[in-house]
Amino acid sequence: MTVATSERVEAVYRSVHAKIWRSLLAVSGDPELASDAESEAFAQALRRGEAIDDVERWVWKSAFRILDGLLSDRRRPAPTTTHERVMIDDVDAEFLSMLGGLTLQQRQIVVLRYVGQFNAAEIAEVLESSPGSVRVQLHRAHESLRSSMTEGKLS
């Protein structure tokens, strides 16, 4: 890991950290998992160094894939290292719980749309899907969230 690589990746981290971490939080509902996925993605970016052309895009994509893996590993052991604990207030926790009613893919798409502010083509690139599929899933997510609103879960 060269100094140049470290500086280049850290510059990306400083510019997108908030968006990426909160996106991962909204998808997983778990601050620890969000931090694990984000730090692993940036660690991998540091390792690959100059082999990555667009660090920001690479990290978005990798972080979501890593989170996928973490979410699917139900036997994941408790973290061996302690790190900063993040408290989520009740209002945000309620919102995260509502997002939890969506499928994982719908959650990812909604989060990338509203937090990442990506368009369909960019979301499709991150999730290795197609723009058409992204639109369909976003539509379904909206239907589900609209239903939640109607039931008073979201005001």
Partner: peptide, 25 residues
């Protein structure tokens, strides 16, 4: 409504993960 809720979420706490990333690398 979604923009507002995500906006609120983005004002919440934010951990510092750069040190963890470097250590992991």
């Amino acid at each position: 409504a979604l923009v507002a809720r995500f906006h609120r979420l983005q004002r919440g706490a934010l951990p510092e993960n750069w040190g963890r990333a470097v250590e992991r690398a």
